[in-house]
Amino acid sequence: MRSTRRLEEMEATASSVVPDAPPVVTLECVDLVKNFGGVRAVDGVSLSFEAGKVTALVGPNGAGKTTLFHLLTGSIKPDSGAILYRGSPIQGLPPWTVAQMGIGRLFQDVRIFPNLTVLENVLVARPIQRGERALVSLFAPRVVVKEEADSTDRASEWLDRVGLSEHADQPAQALSYGQQKLLAIARLLAAGSDVLLLDEPTAGVNPMLIKRLLTIIRDLSGGGRTVVLIEHNVNVVLDVADWVYFLDEGQVAAFGLPQEVLSDPVVRGLYLGLRA
């Protein structure tokens, strides 16, 4: 199943339906390897993600999907292999540098700053602001005040976009689980991330909010951002993904269009427990 031949077949099928314009690859990894003790969590994985496309990573638990996100965001360092962002290697850079370059991440277990207000959660994530520089804060307070007012306006717009503007002044911990996920997405949007790594964005979210989330994801990719999605919900993958990588035991087992990959009998057997 996990043979190179199989992968090549699917890539060939996929390339036959790629539209005319050459794809712009924003993020890619080449022969990435990560071991934890004796366990090889990521085993020579090579992937590429295109601007303006939603790419889904699917696979059974333990396939190495979340580890891959940890590697792409600099939270852990690979044992070997390369990660390229717009052609430049970024492996080994600290997470905050990777984030400032434009790679944002939504965690599987929703993470917020619980004691900050909803608006403050978004403000903290705005791109580098001059108010962050201590000397500017001290000697040019007017510049900082104006910039903070602009930031607040922008952050409010993002909250409005995800439907949380009415909760702006509430502590973030007062939001429901689904709303906290929307807040985390608003924060990613405010950060101006070019590449969005979304780890199970719809897990534990009610159907109404899922609908809103999917609309946002489609809009983001339509606007030219690179969206990478780890998702267990097959319907969501079929709905929003342009490409699908199927991972198993730390390796890429299949790649292609969502319908093809998910209808592949071997993938169905491994992933969905359905035998051909």
Binding site: I112, F113, V124, A125, P127, I128, Q129, A191
Partner: peptide
């Protein structure tokens, strides 16, 4: 902003780092 960043790091330093 610095105050908000400090309070953010207080709440969750790992998240703060991933946010840049």
């Amino acid at each position: 902003l610095w105050g908000k960043i400090i309070r953010g790091v207080r709440d969750n330093p790992v998240l703060a780092e991933v946010l840049g």
